[in-house]
Each structure stands twice: as structure tokens, then as C-alpha cells.
Simulated scan of single mutants.
Amino acid sequence: MGADGDLLRSAARTRRRAKLHLCDGRLDQFGAEDREARQAAEHASITHRHRAVATGGAVRWEPSLLFRPSTGGGDRHTRYATEGGPSLTPLDPMTSRRPAAEAASGYDAGAFSHHMTGEQGRLRALEKLWDPFTEHSLRRAGVPAAARCLEVGAGAGSVARMLARICPGGHVTATDIDTRFFAELAAEERVTVLSHDVTQDGFPAGSFEVVHARMVLCHLSCPEQVLAAMSQWLVPGGLLLVEDFDLAPADASPHPVMRRGLHVAEQTLEASQGSDLRLGRRLQALVTDAGFDLGGMAVQPVLIGDGGPADEFWRLSFAQLHEFQARNSSPLAGELDAAMSLIDRPDFTDIGMHAVSVWGRKPGGPLSDPSA
């Protein structure tokens, strides 16, 4: 891939070094830059809509009040609680006992940012590709009908809708750093839409019976720390289900053009926003290392070129990555174009990746007993 490929790999190595320093909690040049970015972000106009309503000892979150972080002195975090209900407690990453994870601004400025043209369509294509697999895994894992569910990184909102359907007596809190693509869900009776950065904002301990995140951990610098936080938000015996890609099959592709295109896609996302598209391979270890009792794991090969939903997902993904590369006048955009054109050839079919789903229970409590 020449000089541009070398630059991508160099940038990716720099981001990996930055991740190691941030995960270890060390303040060096990377930590200082991260801190400056966070301090600047404190003055941004970030809106949280939530209302804690206590009903029969349970707490459900409804869209109601408008809170903005302070732009002056004092604590920038806003806390609200009703009588008998816990408060929403955003975490200050610089003072929390957990080392700071990378700011969400890295993803927000990357090739798959919500600001990129076509991102909503790409997310919709991802839903068509992955939703059947997600619903199958949720039902296998066993989601209580009256569960309080947290959907982290809700994207375009389909899994939040799915959880509301699976839990007819429960409540769903759908979160993302940018809620524009599912904001209409706030009008639903049992769904709350919340602007929330999983690396900075927290919930009270024991707020949920179910936490789900799809294609979230792969975009974070320290997924271990986020899983630890999710464990705190769950009740004892609560269910965690996380899903991610494993792009390893691309290495063995018999089609050199697609192999190069997928590798350029991987390196572009790693360099621009720190994404790890092979995290799915170690997802089970991350869940068990976080202290969860493993409930199960499912893996689905994802074909490209068979006319299925993956074709549209990769067409839109390659097009968006091409746009990102073209902004920098990179010749690597041609590699993405070549891979995209291969998808529609009648003699082409390939296994591009694996979709991986892993679920487990927080130890303790009746929900951790499969026979309960």
C-alpha cells in the first residue's frame, strides 16, 4: 500500500501506545493531551434528558427534564433524584477511581462519526445485518419480561425497540454520545433517550437488570474499564450481553482485492478513531475477566457477495471510508473502491468477518441461577 499505508500503520501504532498509557492511568504526553481535550469538552453544550420516577420500589427513566453542564465554576455534572429514587451520576474521568478511558471525541471525529454523510444509512444497514442475530442471542440469554434495560451505543435505535418488545413489562434506557438517529424513541411510553458517554457518565449501582452493547467496546480505548462500570450498574444476577466484529477471516480471503480493501478499512478506523475490529475474538475473555459468570457465546459468519444484508453494509461502509480517505487525498481510497466494486460481481463470495455475541451474569442474586 506504499507510503500512505505506512502512515496509517504508524498512526495506528501511536494510538495503540496512547491506549496503553491511558489504560495504565499514567499521565504522559498522551494523558496530558487527553486531559486538555476533556477540559475543553466541559464547555460544550451537552444535553441530558432524564427523569427518575419511583414506582413500587423500582426506578424507571423517562424523558422530562433538560439539564446542561455548568459553563462556569463548580461541578459540571448535574444530579437529579426523586423521592425514593437514585440519581443519575456522571463520572468525572479525572477523579474517578477508574483510570480515564479515551474521550468519545475520538469516535466522534472518526470515519464513522454521526457527522459523516450517509452514517444513518450505514447504521440502518448494520441493523438489517445484525438484528436477527442479536435477538436470537438475547432470547437465548434469557431477558426478564419486566427488566430495566440499558442499551449502550444505541446507534439508530433498533435494539432499543427490540428490548422494549422483548420486555413488555420493563423499561429501556437508550444511550449514545449522539442521539440524533433515534431521538424519536423518546416519545415511546417505556423508552428513555439519553445523551451519555459510556467512558465518562455513570448510573447508580444496581440500576438495571440487563445491559446490552453492540459494536461499542471495539471503539473504546479501555473496554475492560467500561465492562467494570457496566457490572456496577447491574443488579446482582443481572445480564450483560455484548457483541462485536472479528475481522480475522479477512486475512485468509482468497480474493486479494477484498483482502486489501478490508485491511485498509481496518487500518483507517484504527488510525482515525482507535477502533479494534478484531475485538470479537477476545470478547469472551474480556467478559469473564470483568468478573461475569459466562452464560454463552455465539458466532455467526458474515458473507459478502451473496446478495444478503452484509453487501449493503459493506457498500456503505467502503463508501464512507472512501470519503474520509479522499479528504486527505489518499490513494488508498482506490483500494476501497476496488473492494466495493467486487461485491456485485456474480463470481464473488467471501467470508468477510464473524459477528460475535457473548453474555454473562453478574455474580449473586436469583437471576444468576439459570434454574430460577
Rank of each mutant, 00 (worst) to 15 (best):
3 A>W: 13
4 D>K: 09
10 S>G: 07
11 A>T: 12
14 T>W: 14
16 R>E: 11
16 R>T: 12
20 L>A: 15
21 H>F: 12
30 F>E: 06
34 D>P: 09
36 E>I: 15
36 E>N: 14
38 R>N: 11
42 E>H: 11
44 A>I: 07
52 A>N: 04
54 A>D: 15
63 P>K: 04
69 P>R: 07
75 D>V: 08
75 D>A: 11
78 T>E: 15
79 R>M: 09
82 T>S: 15
86 P>F: 14
87 S>G: 13
93 P>C: 04
97 R>Q: 08
98 R>P: 00
102 E>C: 07
105 S>E: 07
108 D>E: 13
112 F>P: 07
123 L>T: 00
124 R>S: 07
131 D>A: 10
132 P>S: 01
132 P>M: 02
134 T>R: 01
136 H>Q: 14
140 R>F: 03
147 A>M: 05
148 R>N: 10
148 R>A: 10
150 L>S: 07
151 E>G: 01
155 G>L: 06
155 G>P: 06
156 A>T: 09
159 V>G: 00
159 V>I: 10
164 A>P: 02
169 G>S: 00
170 G>L: 09
171 H>M: 05
172 V>S: 06
172 V>W: 12
175 T>A: 10
177 I>C: 11
181 F>C: 03
186 A>M: 01
189 E>I: 03
191 V>F: 06
195 S>G: 15
195 S>A: 15
196 H>P: 02
196 H>C: 04
197 D>W: 14
202 G>W: 09
204 P>Q: 14
205 A>L: 06
207 S>M: 15
211 V>S: 03
214 R>T: 01
215 M>V: 04
217 L>D: 05
217 L>V: 03
219 H>R: 12
220 L>W: 02
220 L>A: 00
220 L>Y: 02
221 S>C: 04
222 C>I: 02
223 P>F: 01
224 E>N: 09
227 L>Y: 13
229 A>K: 12
232 Q>G: 04
233 W>C: 00
235 V>K: 14
243 E>L: 06
243 E>F: 05
244 D>S: 00
245 F>E: 06
247 L>P: 05
249 P>K: 00
254 P>G: 07
258 M>C: 14
262 L>F: 14
266 E>V: 14
267 Q>Y: 08
272 S>W: 13
273 Q>F: 11
276 D>P: 00
276 D>A: 01
276 D>E: 02
277 L>W: 09
277 L>M: 11
278 R>S: 06
278 R>A: 04
279 L>K: 13
280 G>C: 05
280 G>V: 07
287 V>K: 09
290 A>T: 04
293 D>C: 11
294 L>I: 03
296 G>W: 04
299 V>I: 12
303 L>N: 03
306 D>V: 05
307 G>E: 09
307 G>C: 08
320 Q>K: 05
323 E>A: 13
324 F>E: 04
324 F>W: 12
325 Q>E: 13
328 N>W: 13
330 S>L: 03
332 L>A: 02
332 L>N: 03
334 G>Q: 11
341 S>G: 08
342 L>Q: 06
344 D>Y: 02
345 R>C: 15
355 A>K: 07
355 A>M: 08
358 V>I: 04
363 P>E: 03
364 G>C: 08
365 G>L: 06
366 P>F: 08
367 L>M: 11
367 L>N: 05
372 A>G: 01
